[in-house]
Simulated scan of single mutants.
Amino acid sequence: MFTAAVCTEICKPLEFQQKKDHGLSPFDDEVLLSVKYCGINFADILVCQGKYQSSIPVPFTPGTEVTGIVQEVGKNVKTLKKGDKVVSLIMSGGFSTHCIAPEVFTWKLPSSVDLRAGAGLVVNYGTAYLALTRKANLQQGESVLVTAAAGGTGLAAVEIASKVFKSKHVIAACGGPEKGNIAKSKGATDVIDYKQEKLRNRIKDITGGDGVDVVFDPVGGDMFLDCVKSLAREGRILTIGYASGKIPSIPANLLLLKSGSAMGLFWGEYRIMNTPVFLKSVEDVLEQTRLGNITPHIGKEFPLNKINEAFQYVMGRGSTGKVVISMDRQESNL
């Protein structure tokens, strides 16, 4: 039985469809997967709303970050075989029981990560790793501030800064004690509850007035300006996304006065514009996972037939870590 969540009309709920046969067959450089989990990324929601930078003609099945079991391989496939447990990045089609995936963007899962956790591994950690290394050039012992630190990408940045780079201060800014505790579990040395505390004042206290070397910001909005003002000399601020819904503007003189830098990262674009760098970011994440430095946090799981509720949950901004869809369950006990 082939089951999929299908977008038949933009801005309408996804339809839950079933067929007797999936009718899928891999080309020479592809594999057929039995999908077990698909992670929800905000881009999945945006494309169904017609708000993403690239569109897909309806009807289509969204979903790009999947884990599953290889069922069939194309004749040119060398690195994978039937029965392998894998994680894959596809262009669409992930919220279904079966999908076709390119070999080049499909990797064997490390033995320490199960299929469920694997669905929160590649996008979040690949983004955070490339941002902190290639863009910010984070050095061991430097201090890092992460906003939205209990979200999927934020938690990834906290864990990488703490466990890979051994940062002196890993400051997690998030809303509420529950989210703060999750950030601490991933290695945050300090937590700022921005519902209760002033960001700049706390950073001054934590760093002794020096400011932070690197800011990892998926939030944007008014907080971005406070983050820039909290930079240390020669500090770097990374703009990763705009969860606040507001794209910030900053006075350039603030960067001049601190000899600082502001830079952006659109990780998914590297897949096309610089594939070797993109692939290396994933390979580095998988290696750090094997070393025990990375363990994805799955905040909540929904069954496939509850995908519309899952989208609403993610849009509500109350989620922590990664929210995943299970293909094998018709109801979730989480």
Rank of each mutant, 00 (worst) to 15 (best):
S111E: 10
P303Q: 12
R233P: 03
P276I: 05
A252Y: 09
E103R: 04
K184F: 11
A310R: 04
G235W: 13
G187W: 04
D213V: 03
T61K: 03
L33N: 00
Y194P: 06
T153A: 14
S332C: 13
K322I: 03
F2V: 10
V47T: 09
K198L: 10
T239F: 04
H169W: 11
I10L: 10
S230A: 12
Y242R: 07
G321P: 07
K198N: 15
V86E: 00
N305Y: 11
V77R: 04
L33I: 05
L130W: 08
P59N: 04
A188N: 11
D28M: 08
P13Q: 03
K75T: 11
E234M: 14
R233A: 02
K280I: 07
G235F: 08
S92K: 13
T147C: 09
L265K: 07
I10A: 10
G264M: 14
P57C: 14
K198T: 10
V215F: 02
V285D: 10
K163S: 03
K166H: 13
Q49S: 05
P110H: 02
P57R: 07
P218I: 12
D213I: 02
G318N: 14
R116W: 01
S54G: 03
D21E: 15
G120N: 01
V314R: 06
S55Q: 15
Y270H: 15
N201Y: 14
E30C: 04
D210K: 14
Q53W: 02
H297A: 03
T295D: 12
Q312G: 13
R317P: 08
Y125V: 02
H98T: 01
L334E: 15
L32G: 00
P62T: 06
V146N: 03
I182V: 15
A161T: 12
K20M: 07
E30A: 03
C48V: 04
S25H: 05
G152S: 07
F95V: 01
V87M: 00
P102Q: 11
I240T: 11
T106M: 10
Y313W: 13
F2D: 06
N201W: 08
S162N: 10
L132Q: 14
L80V: 01
L304N: 06
M263H: 12
S96T: 11
A252D: 08
P110D: 03
G68D: 01
T295W: 01
R271L: 07
V31E: 02
E9L: 06
D84P: 00
P251I: 14
K75A: 12
E309T: 10
M327L: 11
D114F: 01
S34Q: 12
L109K: 00
P110I: 01
V87F: 00
K280F: 02
N76W: 07
H22L: 08
D217F: 02
L24D: 09
V158I: 15
G141D: 07
S319A: 13
K81F: 00
T8A: 07
I69L: 01
E15G: 02
T97Y: 08
F105V: 01
L33K: 00
I45L: 11
P110S: 06
Q140I: 14
K246Q: 15
D213T: 11
V146L: 08
A161H: 11
T189D: 13
Y129F: 15
V285S: 09
